[in-house]
Design a protein around this nucleic acid. Structure first.
Length: 910
DNA sequence: AAGAATGAAAC
DNA sequence: GTTTCATTCTT
């Protein structure tokens, strides 16, 4: 099959609800198509995927997974992970809506979204083809890019939707405006190749240098991901652990890893790594059962980022050496760090489950590790026992799954994990929102013994987790850090975690600083934090949080402004050694930055700074500026967002006025969510013309009239203030006129009218309106037909006749009523509108509220309109309407029509 | 969760 | 022809 062959299907139970399950779709980002593909999956998706997978695997059992994998038609990738379906690309109208909704809202604050949508539809209808064209083109571009990225993509997947584990992905996807392609992953080779190769041409969106931008962004993402991933990664890679360890062998990575990921164990690991290290990186990893890694070792040729991504995603992480070579740049280092972090995790966990048959070497490594960590080992058993038993089994079934499951279990054990959970949790929460189904499934998963992730997390978190953590810590201390008394000190974070785990963990479970749904782990952490910090400082929290979330990382650098505690300090100056941490790996990779040892964070921070300063991370910076809130929001948990928001938003927003805020928010959010990638895309998106409401107003007004016949005012139009320049208006006017002419061959009268209008009116913007309106009318007639057809039709089909029905009066159709409402609202809010619309001069349409209803008001209709012409127009309208309306029956319509005509006439006459 | 709109695609 | 689903976000 195309896709997948597999198909299909239905996973039976999986589906839960009878309807079709919704699939989770990741949003696809154009960038991805290009180069990004490679990483894309890994990064964001990874998280999601992994998460999903685990649950899916365990709980649902392979079946679903399979399905999922199959699902992707596009990619084919088998990887289960990939399965998530990409979200459909937006069509022109949606793009338009997205871009203008805020405007609409601004104008009509009270209006609910639906209303806004209606207005948008009206606007859209009114929009000239040329104008629409841009959106259409963009949509097309977007679609094309999307299709490239996802070759076999089907809009409507037949039935299967993978429902998979719903939550994570979905939520994430949703949040992020432009998400990554679902699975490109392995899909591969093809996909990768193509995109890269083409890279340039394909997307316009693309951004600047793929290398640079993409690289950076990817890098960042990767980094973030890695951080975030800890948990995830743990899950995903577990298998890899051993491998990683080997690879990791490289000190640099480890160090980095430690830094990035965290806290404690690193040193020990590092040592281990050193010992082991030399084993061949590539082979082993390959050997590992990892799913992903089919690929041959990546050479430098690939971008570092890519490598990273792969590593991270696969967990295999072989490439260390290469990476080094390739990536000497700061970015690279960063990437390494990220990777390292993952590796670290893996390693930490590496207790090595038997499952991996991987290579001897790997085993050996594992053995070493174990020996050292032996102390920890006890944990392993525990953790494993809890959830992992199932995981193991699963592993047997599928290598990938096993890996994931294992990781999960291991993760729980690791101290690092604690932090990560936060992220995940939030995601989960969000996901939940999405669908009931999902939720159900999720619940199932939880329930089911097999479900690795959730179960593990929750349960373990409660008991085993803590224990494991403790053990880990101890082990670490003994092993590498050894003495490190520091461990306890270490970072606040680590410390907190430690403390929390032992003491509070059990007790506290429920407290949450922020109510959201956190899982116990989080809670613990938080509690711990609280205790230590006592909440007093939000900042502290931030820090901690930051590391966790991907975005958070980003923030750090930017954030610097804020008083960061140790982290920040450390970052800038490597000199100040982080107190404790032995872990610190001095970053070999970057001696420059950190000469001696620093805290992980500091190192990272330094890196970021460097990058930023270099300009490499501009986008990042931009994001930061915007406010993390968005970004945070996108990926992270709500609660994080909340705080973030406060800090940022408020400051920024200032609150000129509520409206603004909202608006800004919405806008910001979009971009932020994704980060740089999105930005690029956004740029494009933003480049799309945003028409001023005024413009629409005019158009709409006229349109409205026609449609509704109600003379009334312009529904939406009102915003006087808008910036529409006179020139624009003129242009509009001209357009209209031209259109009108073309379309309507109508009688000369029209011409006349036009002529008349043009000359005088053009200059005065306001004045134009009357003429325009007049013109519009005629034009509208046609348009009306179209427009009407559009929405109404649909409605008719779908919903029902209701709206068709006219009101008691009979005079107004329901639709009109709505409009009327709108009008009123508008009027209420904005009296000015009317003025804008009509000058005294006359608008027949005139909007004075009362007048609107009563046509007579407008006394001054331009002379040029002859009755005949008007009549004609009216007739046309009627015709159109009649056609449309025919179905309807109605008198109502007729009535409507009637009024219109008269109105016009009356105006004319008068 | 539903629903408002349009459009594209799949049935 | 009809149904899905993409986006947004209030109700």
């Amino acid at each position: 099959m195309k896709g997948g062959g597999r198909g299909k299907e239905p996973p039976v139970e999986g589906e839960v609800s009878g309807k079709r399950p919704k699939r989770k779709c990741l949003q696809w980002h154009p960038l991805l198509s290009k180069k990004a593909l490679d990483f894309s999956e890994e990064e964001e998706e990874e998280d999601e995927e992994e998460l999903d997978k685990e649950p899916a695997l365990c709980s649902e059992s392979g079946g679903q997974e399979v399905d999922c994998g199959a699902m992707d038609e596009e990619g084919e990738g088998e990887e289960d992970s990939s399965e998530q379906r990409a979200r459909r690309p937006m069509n022109a109208f949606l793009l338009f809506c997205k871009r203008h909704r805020s405007l609409v809202r601004q104008e009509h604050p009270r209006l609910d979204n639906r209303g806004a949508t209606k207005i948008l539809a009206d606007w859209w209808a009114v929009l000239e083809p040329k104008e629409k064209q841009k959106y259409t083109d963009m949509a097309k571009e977007y679609k094309d890019a999307f299709m490239k990225a996802n070759p076999g993509y089907k809009w409507c997947p037949t039935a299967n939707k993978p429902v998979k584990s719903p939550s994570h992905q979905v939520s994430n996807a949703r949040k992020k405006v432009w998400a990554f392609p679902p699975n490109p992953t392995k899909d591969s080779a093809v996909a990768k190749k193509i995109p890269k190769m083409d890279n340039a041409p394909q997307l316009n969106f693309a951004m600047a240098d793929p290398t640079k931008m993409g690289g950076l962004s990817m890098l960042l993402l990767a980094g973030e991901h890695a951080l975030t991933a800890r948990e995830i990664s743990s899950s995903s890679s577990q298998t890899g652990v051993t491998d990683v360890a080997k690879h990791a062998g490289k000190s640099a990575l480890f160090q980095l890893a430690e830094i990035s990921s965290t806290p404690a164990q690193p040193t020990a690991e590092r040592k281990h790594s050193e010992e082991r290290n030399p084993s061949a990186s590539g082979q082993e990893y390959t050997g590992a059962s990892q799913p992903g890694p089919p690929e041959p070792p990546k050479s430098c040729a690939k971008s570092p980022l890519f490598q990273l991504a792969e590593i991270s995603s696969s967990s295999s992480g072989s490439p260390m050496p290469e990476g080094k070579q390739c990536g000497q740049s700061a970015l690279f280092q960063l990437a390494e760090m990220c990777l390292a972090s993952e590796a670290e995790k893996m390693e930490a966990r590496s207790f090595q489950p038997p499952s991996q048959s991987s290579l001897d070497s790997s085993q050996d490594d594992a053995a070493h590790t174990e020996s050292k960590q032996s102390k920890d080992s006890p944990d392993l058993p525990l953790s494993t026992s809890s959830s992992s038993s199932s995981s193991f089994s699963s592993s047997s079934s599928s290598s990938s799954s096993s890996s994931t499951s294992t990781s999960a279990s291991s993760a729980s054990s690791t101290p690092t994990d604690t932090s990560p959970p936060l992220l995940n949790q939030p995601k989960n929460v969000t996901n939940k929102k999405k669908k009931k189904k999902e939720g159900k499934e999720t619940s199932k998963a939880d329930k089911s013994p097999s479900s690795p992730k959730k179960t593990c997390k929750k349960r373990q978190s409660s008991d085993s987790d803590l224990e494991s953590v403790i053990y880990t810590i101890e082990a670490v201390a003994k092993g590498a850090w050894g003495v490190e008394e520091g461990s306890p000190k270490k970072k606040a974070r680590s410390t907190t975690s430690e403390k929390s785990s032992p003491g509070d963990g059990p007790l506290s479970p429920k407290k949450k600083i922020k109510p959201k749904v956190r899982k116990p782990l989080k809670t613990k952490e938080e509690q711990a934090k609280e205790e230590q910090v006592q909440e007093s400082k939000p900042q502290v929290v931030e820090k901690e949080v930051a590391p966790l979330s991907p975005k958070a990382e980003v923030e750090e650098p930017a954030v610097k402004s804020e008083p960061q505690t140790s982290l920040e300090e450390g970052a800038p100056q490597c000199s100040s050694p982080a107190p404790v941490k032995s872990e610190e790996k001095e970053t070999e990779a970057k001696p420059e930055n950190c000469g001696s040892r620093k805290s992980e964070r500091s190192c990272k921070g330094a890196l970021y700074k460097t990058l930023v300063s270099e300009g490499m991370l501009t986008s990042l910076r931009a994001n930061v500026d915007r406010g993390k809130r968005g970004s945070v929001r996108g990926s992270v948990s709500d609660h994080e967002i909340s705080w973030t928001e406060e800090s940022w938003t408020f400051s920024q927003a200032v609150a000129s006025n509520p409206k603004k805020l909202k608006k800004s928010k919405s806008k910001d959010e979009i971009p932020q969510g994704l980060g740089k990638l999105e930005e690029e895309f956004e740029k494009k998106f933003n480049s799309l013309p945003q028409y001023s409401p005024v413009t629409f107003d005019k158009k709409s007004t006229s349109a409205t009239k026609k449609k509704k016949s109600t003379p009334a005012s312009p529904a939406e139009p009102p915003k006087p203030g808008k910036s529409s320049s006179s020139s624009q208006k003129k242009a509009l006017f001209h357009k209209i006129v031209s259109k009108y002419k073309h379309k309507k061959e109508k009688p000369n009268t029209l011409d006349k009218a036009i002529a008349g209008c043009d000359s005088p009116v053009l200059e005065m913007v306001p004045k134009v309106k009357p003429c325009a309106q007049g013109m519009v009318l005629s034009a509208e007639a046609q348009r009306a037909a179209e427009m009407l057809v559009g929405s109404q039709k649909r409605k008719a089909r779908k919903s029902k006749i209701t709206h068709l029905v006219r009101t008691a009066d009979g005079r107004v159709s329901p639709a009109e009523e709505d409009k009327a409402k709108e009008l009123t609202q508008d009027q209420d809010e904005k009296p000015l509108n009317q003025e804008t619309l009509c000058n005294e001069e006359g608008c027949y349409a005139a909007p004075r509220s009362e007048e609107a209803e009563r046509p007579d008001a407008s006394s001054s209709l331009p002379a040029f309109f002859s009755l005949a012409a008007l009549a004609e127009v009216a007739a046309m309208e009627n015709v159109h309407r009649g056609q449309r309306a025919v179905g309807m029956s109605s008198e109502g319509q007729v009535k409507e029509m009637a009024p219109q005509t008269p109105v016009l006439i009356s105006c004319a006459d008068q």
